[in-house]
Design a protein around this nucleic acid. Structure first.
Lengths: 213, 213
DNA sequence: GGCTGTGAACTTATTCACAGCT
DNA sequence: AGCTGTGAATAAGTTCACAGCC
């Protein structure tokens, strides 16, 4: 397998979503053209992205929705149910813990918070434990990934604890740069950064072509 | 101004954050080296990114923290307080409305929800109005940007309403591809996609170099 | 001497044209 | 005939080396 552009992975997620909608709708056959329309990229791009991983279609015909869906789930690691913990059960953590789609694809092991009044509470499918139990839980209950929703000031410290305890991935909602060993995967969900970028694009509507003088 | 890479804008936000931390700490002088360390990129990259917009430093000396901070705020449109509405005041919308950093940089005009029991409520600094008032509010109260936190199934419809009403930017929390006219800026905050990507990187820890056969 | 600013080299990603199957 | 799969061309983005200025 050749080296796959980062952006390709992001697009694969979108293709998978489109395929899931098609399968729900009962569609059996699709094409790079149709996937492209559904995800806002070009058909060339769709075919190239898929080609990094193999050939899943039939020339002259197209792709079979359930087949391609299964393959993409496999590639993206959605085949296995990763074991996930919530770290930080404030407003944001609580909102996310109650997000139903999460529980479909991930095994929600537990939540953690420093606040004693939250410990013991049940938030949707997630029961809150004290921070002291973080390391034992990660180790003994084979946690793969942590959803980090603690305040900015604590994010770096807690992330380091998680890495030391042995998680393999962190979904980071705090607006900080985590500098972790590269065997730990990190994805940042930084909506404040998104807002700042939005500000730039609103100020510079023509940034794509040639920007203002 | 030459065409600026998309990724540069994302990094500018990080530089700005680092500068704000430095200014809080009372630091007056910094360097591309130091900014690079704080944000996890190379010093070359920092200098190149800044060079797209002008020259803000002094050769042989470095950058003056408050000066560079002011310039970056200017570039990113943080100089003016954009007027923002929340669309969708469910758990996620509520959590975000209460996020204190938001109110520092944005004028929180109002929130909107279809649920009658939410209408009229005060969520942190945000008062909830009925969806019927969406268009009038956008037009009469000069709303610049909408934070879209409605269920997936409604996201496309509501986004189109917002565009028609005249917003200039949408921060989209729904996991759907919005295909909007290009004069409207869109930023997606798609944490489910982040989780899927995490799955891929956990499965393929060596994806950076050469991936498995 | 030291650190910025930038053209040029290089690397990575996207677009394209068409060969290869069905 | 039609649509995928892919090497080659083009474009975009990053790294680098060093010129320029304090």
């Amino acid at each position: 397998m050749a080296k796959v552009p980062d952006a390709t992975i992001t697009r694969l997620v979108q293709y998978l979503r489109a395929l899931e909608r098609m399968e729900e709708a009962g569609t059996v056959r699709t094409s790079s053209e149709e996937l492209a329309r559904a995800t806002g990229v070009t058909a060339f791009q769709v075919r190239k992205d898929l080609a990094y991983f193999g050939s899943y279609g039939t020339r002259g015909v197209g792709y079979t929705v359930p087949v391609l869906r299964r393959e993409l789930r496999q590639i993206l690691g959605m085949g296995r149910r990763w074991r996930l913990i919530f770290v930080g059960m404030g407003r944001l953590g609580q909102a996310l813990a109650d997000y139903p789609i999460l529980a479909e694809s991930y095994e929600l092991v537990a939540g953690f918070d420093v606040k004693p009044e939250l410990v013991g509470q049940q938030v949707g499918p997630v029961k809150v434990r004290p921070m002291e139990e973080l390391e034992t839980t990660v180790r003994e209950e084979h946690v793969d990934v942590a959803l980090l929703a603690v305040p900015e000031s604590q994010a770096v410290r807690v992330a380091n604890r998680l890495v030391k305890a042995g998680v393999r991935g962190i979904l980071n909602f705090a607006p900080v740069v985590l500098n972790l060993p590269e065997e730990v995967a990190v994805e940042n969900v930084d909506f404040m950064a998104g807002l700042s970028r939005l500000g730039f694009f609103m100020l510079n509507p023509r940034w794509r072509e040639e920007m203002m003088g």
